[in-house]
């Protein structure tokens, strides 16, 4: 057993080793190992400083809340619970998105519901309808009729936000076809490839309603006049800001074309 005294490190000895205090003869190898493990940083380890600082500058600016109170610090949520919440909320968001779109279009969406759906979209990084990489500008803001409450209403450098641009006429046409078909199931059906194209652009069949609602929801002649609301869906917020969705709202992204959900009213 003599040779296995090292296997008998007790709590006290462990604490000593952790503290880097000189270890007994039997722990010399371990002491050396620990010393090497915490050796001063190598150049390689510090090579990324410039990139890190640049990332900080961009991310920090991106996180600047314009009118949001300082209490943005989120509570620590156990990861497992978080994962569940994300999954559940993602499901709800998808459900709400389609419902929301229809309701938004018909104008009978309860105030707040839309915002809620959208805040979930953004918070969870669920791609907003136009986040699929096509140049249709006003998508998500149109869908939800509001910006996400804690999202700054300034362009977010480095985020996936897009500035509103002219609508893609092709997409608009597809959405019109889709809308016509939806309203009149017995009428002219969409061509299969159009349907696929639309689905791809929307980021999935289930997102088409929200996607098209965003495009069609605004009067066509109004397209270029809206506020420069950044399309959010910042992927980085995937586990960020949970618990502040739907509160402290600052919905300033509306142009009156849609119901204006405001938690304050």
């Amino acid at each position: 057993m003599h040779t296995w005294r090292t296997g008998r490190i007790g709590l006290t000895e462990a604490d000593r080793l952790v503290a880097g205090e000189p270890s007994g003869p039997d722990c010399r190898g371990l002491g050396a190992l620990l010393n090497v493990a915490k050796a001063p940083a190598s150049e390689e380890e510090l090579a990324g400083e410039r990139a890190a600082v640049a990332g900080f500058a961009a991310a920090y600016r991106g996180a600047v809340p314009t009118g949001v109170p300082k209490r943005r610090r989120r509570a620590w949520i156990p990861l497992s619970a978080k994962g569940l919440a994300v999954k559940a909320a993602a499901g709800v968001a998808v459900l709400l998105a389609s419902g929301t779109a229809v309701a938004a279009e018909t104008g009978n969406l309860p105030a707040g519901a839309q915002e809620h759906a959208h805040s979930m979209f953004s918070t969870l990084g669920v791609p907003a309808p136009d986040a699929g990489g096509r140049p249709t500008g006003a998508g998500p803001a149109g869908v939800a009729g509001s910006v996400r409450p804690s999202t700054p209403a300034i362009p977010t450098p480095g985020a996936s936000g897009t500035t509103p641009g002219p609508k893609d006429p092709a997409m608009l046409a597809l959405c019109r076809a889709w809308d016509a078909e939806r309203k009149d199931p017995h009428g002219k059906a969409m061509a299969a490839e159009d349907r696929r194209a639309l689905s791809a652009a929307a980021g999935g069949q289930s997102r088409v309603p929200a996607f098209c609602a965003a495009l069609l929801g605004e009067p066509p002649d109004n397209a270029a006049t809206t506020h420069p609301v950044p399309a959010t869906a910042t992927p980085s917020h995937s586990d960020n800001g949970k618990g502040n969705g739907g509160t402290g709202g600052n919905p300033d992204g509306n142009n009156g074309a849609r119901p204006t959900p405001s938690p304050h009213r």
Partner: peptide, 15 residues
């Protein structure tokens, strides 16, 4: 590690 620092950067304001 990069992701870690980015997230820290985003949330640092409230720290």
């Amino acid at each position: 590690a990069s992701e870690t620092w980015l997230q820290a950067a985003r949330d640092l304001r409230g720290f």
